[in-house]
């Protein structure tokens, strides 16, 4: 109970901070909008490749952009954690009865809400430029859910890294190093069947790809729910592992002070 109450209080703290800088959501939408509009136009012709299986690239791309936006945003979850460390905010909580988990879940809750808002905006934008979400609200809800899952998992990783590295430069370098490769070794931009074999194999183990495939399947007219459930299960397992890592990072941090 205490963990839930603490998480609620921490969430309020982070939501207040977000509320005071709502333009941040708009800024973080610039990139996905560019992907959606620019990549959508640039790679329009890839649908002509035999075996691509879709004749509307924006349609194909939109769910991928939703998931990727959640993933990119989550990578930076650790940045305010480093600021909290520098200003002694984390230390103040660590010497209080607050549940450590709430220092993570509070940020994840704020990140999840941000993801949901961003996802809806991207979906509306995609609709405007010709995409369709055949499965309606249910499909979009599942798409947002898997986006929140992948965002939460990488949010945990980012928080853990922040606690271990304690330097913004290190976190930025690590996140930059991971974001693009993981994005390209996934079905975000390209049908997996058309990838080189080795890449398709790597993509099978890429959590981002699990989310992209589950999200894309969910918005089709007749989704394969078993496949979606399988991918979602994998994402939940990945989130648990990442959460464990973040909790351990608090212990490692405390041992070093």
């Amino acid at each position: 109970m205490k963990a839930i109450a603490d998480a609620r209080h921490m969430t309020v703290r982070h939501l207040m901070a977000l509320w005071r800088q709502p333009w941040w959501i708009a800024v973080s939408l610039v990139q996905p909008v560019i992907w959606l509009l620019l990549f959508g136009a640039l790679f329009k012709a890839v649908t002509d490749i035999p075996g691509f299986g879709s004749d509307n690239y924006v349609q194909f791309l939109a769910p991928g952009v939703v998931v990727m936006t959640a993933f990119f945003g989550a990578g930076w979850t650790g940045m305010p954690v480093i600021e909290d460390l520098d200003r002694g905010v984390i230390d103040r909580f660590l010497v209080s009865p607050v549940r450590r988990s709430s220092l993570i879940t509070g940020r994840l809750a704020q990140g999840g809400l941000t993801t949901a808002i961003q996802s809806l905006i991207i979906v509306l934008l995609a609709l405007a430029v010709g995409a369709t979400f055949a499965n309606g609200i249910v499909g979009v809800a599942v798409l947002i859910a898997v986006s929140v899952l992948i965002g939460s998992a990488f949010g945990c990783l980012s928080i853990g890294l922040a606690l271990l590295a304690r330097r913004e430069e290190t976190l930025i370098a690590t996140v930059q190093f991971l974001l693009l490769p993981l994005s390209f070794v996934s079905a975000t931009f390209m049908q997996k069947d058309l990838m080189p074999d080795w890449m398709a194999t790597v993509a099978d183990y890429n959590p981002l790809n699990w989310a992209v495939e589950a999200g894309r399947e969910a918005v089709t007219a007749s989704p394969d729910w078993a496949a979606i459930a399988g991918k979602t299960g994998l994402l939940i397992a990945f989130l648990v592992v990442c959460g464990f890592f973040a909790m351990r990072a608090f212990r490692t941090y405390q041992r070093s002070v």
């Binding site: 703290r13 207040m16 909290d84 200003r87 905010v89 103040r92």
Partner: peptide, 18 residues
């Protein structure tokens, strides 16, 4: 111990954005 103490660290510990 945590229930019984109040702490002001050298860095302060307040959230500047609140």
């Amino acid at each position: 111990v945590r229930e019984a103490i109040g702490v002001v660290s050298q860095q302060g510990g307040h959230d500047r954005e609140a």
